[in-house]
Design a protein around this nucleic acid. Structure first.
Lengths: 231, 231
DNA sequence: TATCATTAATGACATATATCATTAAATAAC
DNA sequence: GTTATTTAATGATATATGTCATTAATGATA
């Protein structure tokens, strides 16, 4: 991890309009002075379960996973955050320590915003509080919705989900390179690695997708959508 | 459903100390004037998916379920709220309409607090905003944690979870009457009704619990906990 | 390049879970 | 109370999914 030169000013940040649009120039200046942008290579940890919470994390670029290491040392991925997403769960506002870990699944730039400062602005700037709250509430609910969508489906539906997720939510293309291993897909959608591979092969044999290593091309997105819809 | 006489004043409400402790007497008076307490019999709907959102709901008494009706008309229970819980998901702050339905699984008293008023206080009372935010963030995260805890376990672990949940979280007793049918348990922990019944019978045969209809008595909570821990 | 380690792929098999069918018990409706 | 309807219980069976073993492919390391 390396700290990115502080060339970027929050005032010009394209993400300002997302969650920080209600801050005054002065408030934004305070954020700017205290924020740190860090660059992480694919595979690097951003923080680990148990570490104390100081910052609100904002993904500027790349892709990260939120995960938990179970008692049997298996990892379970809770969600994947994409640019413009707040990273983590809401309990950063009530907990002392992180309950989950975060690592980069693609080269990523993360903006660390001082959490106390955010809390101060929640207290002192009502419009910011409301808007900020709305934004991160949505994200939290979408994690719940996704977990349910995944777990009420069987394997084919889950694989269809993950393919549609990357194609439609992350890469905006039916031709993309998987940022995660088959094992990580398994950890994300609660199935065994072997079955992830098997179902992907099955989809390939059925002509739904083409696979070449990490490269995926979706040939028939409608049928994939139908497989997802039917579960 | 019947509207409860407005004898109770928020000022004296035992729940004031939970989420509304930072409101001034005047603010609380406004809440009090606009709030409505309603009584629902077991089985009654509080609201249905698609209805528009006007209130922040607070469970005073009883037990309610948050659920979704799937396209195949099956129901899926997302969570069960107990007294002192905020009912619903955070997106009431960003959505126009409810994404889920809520109904009473025990006779319940629900306090409907005007949502716009809450938003006003978030804007104008910083201490309230922070505290309120912390409280409902916790609830949202605990739903995510629970969904993961359930779905990473197999059937025996899930049934152990639900028994421990009612004994430890809801009734504070190892002897309680199930407020839900076997079918509802199935809808809550993602398994078939038959297998809910089967595993319960198995636990009975193994001497872990006693069952008489809806009445459950836990005989060996340690072994139940172990079954839960091992998954 | 050669070696090692990790990831991917596939088959055979074991296990977990769902589905279907049937009966009994409990509740609700009349 | 009697009848209808829902809920609970259980066995038999089908299906879905996980596990183990093996090999191939890929990527990392020296």
């Amino acid at each position: 991890m390396e700290i990115v030169k502080k060339i970027s000013n929050c005032k010009d940040c394209i993400y300002r309009s997302w969650a920080f649009k209600n801050l005054t120039d002065d408030e934004l200046k305070l954020i700017n002075e205290k924020k740190v942008e860090k660059f992480y290579r694919k595979g690097e940890n951003i923080y680990l379960e148990g570490e104390s919470i100081h910052s609100f994390l904002y993904l500027q670029n790349g892709l990260v996973k939120l995960y938990k290491t179970e008692s049997n040392n298996k990892e379970h991925i809770i969600s994947i955050a994409k640019p413009k997403d707040f990273i983590g769960l809401l309990s950063i506002f009530s907990n002392q320590n992180h309950n989950y870990s975060i690592s980069a699944i693609e080269d990523s730039v993360i903006c660390f915003v001082d959490l106390d400062l955010i809390k101060t602005f929640i207290k002192t700037n009502g419009d910011f509080a409301i808007d900020f709250f709305e934004k991160i509430s949505k994200l939290s609910d979408s994690i719940i919705k996704t977990r349910i969508d995944i777990n009420t489906r069987q394997l084919r539906g889950r694989i269809a989900y993950i393919l549609l997720f990357f194609a439609q939510n992350i890469y905006n293309s039916e031709n993309f390179s998987l940022p995660v291993s088959r094992k990580e897909i398994a950890e994300l959608i609660d199935m065994s690695t072997e079955n992830v591979i098997r179902v992907l092969s099955e989809f390939r044999k059925d002509g739904l997708i083409q696979i070449e290593g990490k490269n995926i091309e979706i040939n028939n997105i409608d049928r994939l959508q139908k497989i997802y819809d039917l579960g």
